[in-house]
């Protein structure tokens, strides 16, 4: 029997997007959007490190404008993306592009952001995998893995017994269905990194309850990508 993939008619006729390339433009917009969301607001300054093919063909593909468009919070079909540099200047978003080598293991279309604004900072790295699909693989220096196809909750904290139970309790209390869950221990088991991918975002009161847990150090919820 031939394997039949589950897909939507709109995977074939779509997405509606700013050209010229789903991997170099639409994917880049999504990466910028997520970096902005992780900072938690409009960045005042962003250092954007481009790796591999992103470094080589960013300008020709408009990848640079797409990344800044995403940082401005634009959707992938927003025609303002073409003028994102001018709009960023007007809105006081300072950006700087560098070429970086993220190693042989990194996907050729990889980018890393360092964002600053409003007394906060964020570090985010990810890759555009093709067809507008993306992957975030580093947040605040920790290895993570999510693709933005679900509402995503990131939690960094102390590694101790019962932590997963504490968080799933908050999900149950808010009637949120979990699609995927990854838990990893880092730094000699002292630290836990949790990635929850859920059908619906957890409401603010749920996030507050999680933030109030004694072992939790950092929490961030990222919306599902709008394709």
């Amino acid at each position: 029997m031939r394997e039949v993939k589950e897909m939507s008619a709109f995977d074939i006729i779509g997405p509606i997007m700013i050209g010229p390339s789903s991997s170099h433009t639409a994917g880049a917009v999504f990466l910028g959007q997520i970096a902005r969301k992780i900072l938690g607001g409009k960045p005042a300054r962003v250092e954007i490190g481009l790796h591999g093919s992103f470094a080589k063909t960013a300008k020709g593909h408009g990848t640079d404008k797409a990344l800044v468009g995403g940082l401005l919070g634009f959707a992938a079909n927003d025609e303002r993306i073409k003028n994102s540099f001018e709009i960023a200047k007007k809105e006081g978003l300072n950006y700087q592009f560098n070429t970086v080598d993220m190693g042989n293991e990194a996907h050729p279309n990889s980018v890393q952001f360092s964002l600053f604004g409003d007394g906060r900072w964020a570090k985010v790295a990810g890759a555009s995998l093709g067809g507008g699909a993306i992957e975030i693989n580093q947040v605040q220096g920790r290895q993570v893995k999510f693709n933005g196809d679900y509402a995503t909750l990131l939690i960094f904290g102390k590694n101790q017994p019962g932590t997963t139970n504490d968080v799933t309790g908050a999900f149950v209390a808010n009637n949120i269905n979990i699609a995927y869950l990854r838990v990893e221990r880092l730094r000699h088991h002292k630290e836990a990194v949790m990635v929850f991918e859920t059908d619906d975002p957890i409401p603010e009161r749920g996030i507050k309850a999680i933030r109030a847990l004694s072992w939790v150090e950092w929490v961030c919820q990222i919306d599902k990508i709008q394709r």
């Binding site: 074939i12 997007m17 700013i18 050209g19 010229p20 789903s22 639409a26 025609e79 993306i81 073409k82």
Partner: peptide, 21 residues
């Protein structure tokens, strides 16, 4: 050309082949 100029198109099935359909 709209695609190459960073205009809005529908990928059918891809951006590079968006003109034919």
């Amino acid at each position: 050309e709209v695609n190459a100029g960073m205009g809005c198109i529908v990928a059918t099935p891809t951006a590079g082949s968006a003109g034919i359909l």
